[in-house]
Amino acid sequence: MSAAAEAARAREVRSRRLLALPALVILALAAIGPLLVVFVYSFLTPGPYGDVVWTFSTDAWTSVFLERDIFDDTLSLADAHMAIFARSVMLALATTVLALLIGFPTAYFIATRPERTRELWLFLVTVPFWTNILIRTFGMLEIIRNEGLINTVLGNLGLIEQPIQMLFTDGAVMAGMLYVYLPLMVLPLYASLDKLDFRLVEAGYDLYATPFRVLTRIILPLVRPGMIAGSILVFIPALGAYVTPRVLGGGKTMMFGTLIELQFGQGRNWPLGAALSITLMALVMVALLVYVRHAGREARHG
């Protein structure tokens, strides 16, 4: 390549970078900027009425994991926080597993419909997306509250005397999240199942595999990328969910999202809220790394 051509190429590369500049600026301002603010705030001191005082402090980070005894100043594991982390992870995991258990048959059903009706089924799966998540969650509330649909019907039928307490329980939060995030599981699962070559299923039957073994040895391994994608798409928002635990869990069953909100609101401890937010991000990052590793292995297998 001649020197002139090389110079021209370099100019072109420069001008291309220039063209990407507006996008980079927006990305920096909208994504990285706020994250940086959160990161910096987590190392500051809380102000008396919220906000922050610009004094460096690691107190926020300490109190994410540890708590200082009010009498003798010793540090111990922050049980309350740990319990909330554990509950958040457990509820998000349970939601993911249930979404997988319900989503797989649903996606399989859609993928095995005749081509023309498949689009209609997919369309129906996306219908809940048309309504705001808050409205949908209040819909759920209306069904499960003590004076709600289920209790009223059961009461009128004479099956129960006292209303069943469903609202403000972990079960209510999980059911609400399951309802909200199920489509996020069904769609990637469908995409995987749609690509599945059903002749492989026949080949399995031909080679003496019972229907259960065809499912576990052939279908599930082949749709694993879809299962992983769906699980990540459900697990991440479920872990940081705010609206659902707030509405259906009440003040008692706190989750990550509600705990963070509390620090920025009534708690007036912005640095702690910021540190908790970053902790949540780290958890999500771990989940994503697991996903990338699995997906990468799958790609090599092809």
Binding site: D197, R199, L200, E202, A203, G204, Y205, D206, L207, Y208, A209, T210, P211, I218
Partner: peptide, 15 residues
């Protein structure tokens, strides 16, 4: 899966 008959498929259908 209970017939002692096996098939070579048109596009092989290898797993």
């Amino acid at each position: 899966f209970r017939r002692p008959i096996n098939t070579v498929f048109q596009n092989y259908a290898l797993f």
